[in-house]
Amino acid sequence: MKQPPNLQEIQEAMRPGRLSQTGFLGTDPRPLGDILAEDDATVRRLGLSHEALADRMAYFREKGVAGLGVPVDVPPHFEVRVDGVRGRMPCPFRHPGLYPKVFCQVKNLRTRETITFSDLQIHMIGAHGFYEGRGSAYRLEPETLIRVLEVSPAESSFNTPLHEAPGGAPSDSPRE
């Protein structure tokens, strides 16, 4: 896949100390285009789309908000805590606006696994198919996300309207 013109600049913005202290790419040496392509292939292989994953994440986030910072049970067997810390983050793909530092912690009580993601990550996955680079502390492996949040292809129709429409993906989106 040819790296679109401004992907390189976005990759620069993702380095540590630019938009965030630790950056978005961790120790991943690959060009951003390759990172996006590989995760895209994984998600497609599992019969899903980035939008479906982001929708599922947004669903848990909305459920969790009701707890006002305290964990809440989400049927059938999830425990979700949503909380915010001071600060806002811009999207490295140069979407306008700032994303509040809200994080959502989802515990799957059946598998005993916990994952944490932020508002910005819901956006980056839904609009850009970006799960962060390997070695980033915030990296969300698509497989883990799908397993812990129990996203199934059938369920991707079970959208919550609260998530921003993925049709807003800009032309710099790496997906063909």
């Binding site: 908000v65 006002l68 910072g69 949503v82 909380d83």
Partner: peptide, 9 residues
């Protein structure tokens, strides 16, 4: 004082 969601609510 607390989570921003708590404050909003």
């Amino acid at each position: 004082c607390g989570s921003s969601f708590l404050i909003q609510a």
